[in-house]
Amino acid sequence: MKLLVIEDEQGLRENIMSYFNDGNVCESCATLADAIYKLSNYDYDCVLLDIGLPDGDGFAVLDFLKKNKKDEAVLIISARNSLDDKIRGLNIGADDYLTKPFHLSELKARVTSVYRRKTTNGNNMLVFNEINIDLPGRVVSIKGSPIVLTRKEYDMLLYFIANKGKVIAKNAIAEHLWGDEMDMHNNFDFIYTHVKNLRKKLLDADCKDYLKSVYGIGYKFLAE
């Protein structure tokens, strides 16, 4: 996947770049002018767009893409948690809207999902080694035989696969599953239960044990 990160905050930009730097081609820029320049010269699969740029409004990028009939998937990362901005962004062609601060794992899950929606034409199967996921039907099969997952377990599995090979903090998982409005107050017993159940179901279906617990911080879904 070829990715363009438009973000003026250097620290954040670098982190996004290095987090996505496994099998993806990442480019970045910090200003609106650079972004327009890059987008008019190259094609990308996905654009991460910060709305508040030093030399202008990030919405201009969306307008530019629309005017030039470019079909990059766009994910807005904005500091403004404003309903108006969200609606406006989604109306003029953005595919998703993420409010700062966010976990990199959340960002990656969203980008993967947006990218998948843009690229797959009808064939909406996600294949990871022996795990086969029919996305529209929400059916998970291991080595051809389907297993039954609860909604949370299913969401969690997709989230882990999108972030395979990364250590994910428990609070990032909690925010993903329950949303950030619902204050879990660092009560992560739920996650433990859900992870335990998911792992058991996968193992029962003769799946390799991908889920590793990283003591004290969270979990890791092995990439191989």
Binding site: G11, N15, A79, P101
Partner: peptide, 13 residues
């Protein structure tokens, strides 16, 4: 929000 996003992403890394 932006500095908070930086902190979170640094921790994630």
């Amino acid at each position: 929000q932006t500095p908070l996003a930086v902190i979170t992403s640094k921790l994630d890394m």
